[in-house]
Structure formats: structure tokens, C-alpha cells
Amino acid sequence: MLPGVPLSDLRKVADRASQMLVNVRESMLAPHPRKKSPVFTTSQVAALCRVERKKVIYSWDKPELGLPPGIANNRTREFSLAETRVWIDKLGPFIKRPDGTKGKKIAIGNFKGGVAKTTTAMTLAQGLSLHGRRVLIIDLDPQASLTALTGTLADSEVEEEQTVLPLIYGEEDDVKYAIQPTYWDGVDLIAASAALFSAEFYLPFKQSKDPHFEFWNVLNKGLEPVLEEYDVVIIDTPPALSYMTINAFMAADALIVPTPPSALDYASSTQFWNLFADLADNMKGLVPDVEQKRYDFIHVLLSKVDSSLASTHAVRDWINRTYESFVLPIEIPTTTVTASAAAEFGTVYDISKYDGSNRTYQRAREAYDRFAEMIDQELVALWQAQKESA
């Protein structure tokens, strides 16, 4: 027998890994629907609506307001996420997207894995939904981590027809066929699976056969018909400069780059910007009007920040000096809350009640809340500018 590991053994490992993931997920998550959105107390609903608690108590007994009363639970009441979003819509101070304006597309990108790219996409979607927004999340990564965060296993629960592949192949003209609801009210999903790898072969092949084919513009065209239905489209990209990443970047109105303040991640981020700049230069030869491409904003988000590490302060300074105004004045800390939530295929927003230190939970939650609020304010400003220029 020849030494080493034959390729045939890889299938055995893959099968065991898939089964183990199913077992782990089933042990951590409740039966179908396996993921459940959190419930909210009266105080939490008031905080999300930016009103005093007594106003919520006063309002739920007013049928003319059309507000769901929740369910009495001992001395308080509990509200589902869907009910809470009704309260936010009715009482919240958030400016709605003006008629005649379209939703904005935000790509979350970085060419290195493990930088909290997928967590950033999911928490931003959840946070914006709590501002009354309707959000579509698109998973373009064959690893399907964003899909997993919605409680869906790509290898056993996602068919090719639920991904963007029919759009890529030209079998569909827009992405409506692939949109599915998630456990989180206000957030819909276009899922991913390992089948997305085939797009990396099909797009250049089609381009070589058809000089009029615009491989970089497929996703952009497919999203256009849904931009009146959603306030925000958030696109989670693969950790590589792939054809799918190019489609996401060319379709996006804005870009967010999560970057942990570690030396290795900082070094990797320089490669991201160099490759991104090379892409822009190369696209000039393919797209005559590429110079007209403008991003409404580009943000570098400091993620997975561990302030207890001495190196964090130095690398943070490097990042600020390098990216200057691109750096958001918000940092996402690494905490036991985020770690425990990730271990259960969730985020801080999935936690109804944290068993550990409330101070630790609030520190993590407040960072994501501030991040979502800042992005929401930018979206409102862009919509208003769009309406005024119409």
C-alpha cells in the first residue's frame, strides 16, 4: 500500500464533517424552526422606540393605535420580534425611505478569513431591522457562513436554485426566485452553498465565448428589480478576489471592510487594498464608464478588538494613519458574549437574556447598536439626497 492519504479518503472526512455539523447544530438549536428570534420586554421595546416605558404601557391599551399588546408574563409583558418591529414602525423616530427612492447595496469585504466579515453582515442586517428597515442579505461565499447564521445548513438544506447560480447561468433575470424569509423578521436571505464555486469557472468561460457578456454586472442587473422592495441589501463576499466578489463590489453602493487590529490582519488588509486597486485599474480596459463608478461610502470597521493586548494600541494607530477618514469611530470588541453567541450559530442580537455579566453583554451590544445607527443615519442622508436630486 502506498503511504500518504489518497484523495478518496477526503470524501470520508467530508461526510463525517457534514454529519458532525448536523449533530452539533441539532444539539444546540431547537427543533424546526431551529432558530428563534428573541423576545423583548416592555423596557426593551421602549428603548428601541426611543420612548419612555410608560408610553409603551399607555399605548398597548389603545386599540386605535393598532399596536400589538404582547403577552403578559408575570409582572411584565413580552413582545415577539415581529410585534416589536410594529412598535418601532409606529412609535420609533426613524425616518422612512422616501417614495421614489431605492434601497442601497452594501458589500462586506476582506480577502482574509476570520476578520468577522460574516458576523458584521448579519449583525448589521439585524441592527438595521431594529431601525424599521427591510433588509435582504445575500451570501456569495461557498462556505455559506452567513447562511448558517440564519440556522440553515448549506450542504443539506440549500438547493442550487436557492442561490444566485440560476442568475449567473442566465436562467433567471433577477434574484426574486431565490429570496426566502429567515427566522428574523425583516431580514430575508439569498442562501449560499458549495455549488457557488462553479461560478468562478462559468463567468470567465462565458466571457471568453461572448465578448458582449458583462461578467462583472450580472449581480447588479439581477438586484435592480428588488431595490424598491428592500431598504438595504447586504452582500457577504468570499475572502478572495473572486468573480463573485467582483460582482458584489461592482454592484455595491457602499463598502465595509472589517479589520481586526492585529499585525497579521493589518498586513493582510494592505493586500486587500492593493488587489482592489489593481481590479479597478484592470476594469478600465473592460468597462468604458468604470470611472463613473462611485461608492457612497467606504468604511474600515475595527473588529474583534481586544484592548487588553499591548499590540492592539499600536496596530490601531497604524490602521488610523493608513485609512484615515475611512475608519469608523466605532470598535467591535471581542467579548465572551460574542464568542458564546458564535458557538451557537448566532450573534449578540439573538440573545434574549444573557446568563453572564450584564455589563459585558451591554458593551458588546452597544457597539453593534452604534454601528447600525451610524450606517442607518448615512442611509437616510443618501435617500434624502436622492429624493432632492430626482
Rank of each mutant, 00 (worst) to 15 (best):
P238D: 10
T101P: 08
E291C: 06
A178W: 03
E344C: 11
Q180I: 09
S325H: 07
F272N: 09
K304S: 03
A367G: 03
E161A: 14
K176H: 09
T336F: 13
S193V: 05
S80T: 10
V187P: 06
W87K: 02
T322F: 05
Y243F: 13
T163K: 05
I190H: 06
Y354N: 02
V290F: 01
E228M: 09
S242P: 01
P239W: 08
S208H: 12
V175I: 04
R75V: 15
S340H: 01
T259C: 13
P6I: 09
V290S: 13
A372M: 07
V13A: 05
S262G: 14
A254C: 10
L149M: 10
A199V: 01
I234H: 01
S193C: 14
D15H: 15
K104H: 14
D173R: 08
L67E: 07
Q44W: 14
L279K: 13
S37R: 08
R25C: 08
E26N: 13
S80L: 01
L140D: 08
I168P: 03
T259L: 15
V45C: 01
S27G: 14
S193M: 09
R363G: 02
L275P: 06
G92Q: 06
E160L: 15
D9H: 14
R134H: 10
G127E: 06
A14I: 05
D9K: 14
A240G: 10
Y183F: 14
V290R: 11
I298S: 08
A277K: 15
N320Q: 12
Y349L: 12
I137A: 12
K112C: 02
L48S: 02
V13F: 11
A30H: 12
P261Q: 13
V287W: 00
A252H: 01
A194E: 13
I106M: 00
H131F: 15
V232K: 07
G222Q: 00
T119P: 09
V257K: 09
F371W: 04
D350I: 04
N110V: 02
L203Y: 04
V380C: 00
F272W: 04
L10A: 11
D185C: 08
P288E: 13
L196F: 08
A148W: 01
V13G: 04
E344T: 01
P239G: 11
F272R: 05
G113P: 07
K221A: 11
S193L: 09
L124I: 05
A195G: 12
K304E: 04
A199D: 00
P258W: 09
G66T: 05
A343W: 11
A372Q: 11
S59F: 05
F276W: 12
I137K: 02
D99S: 06
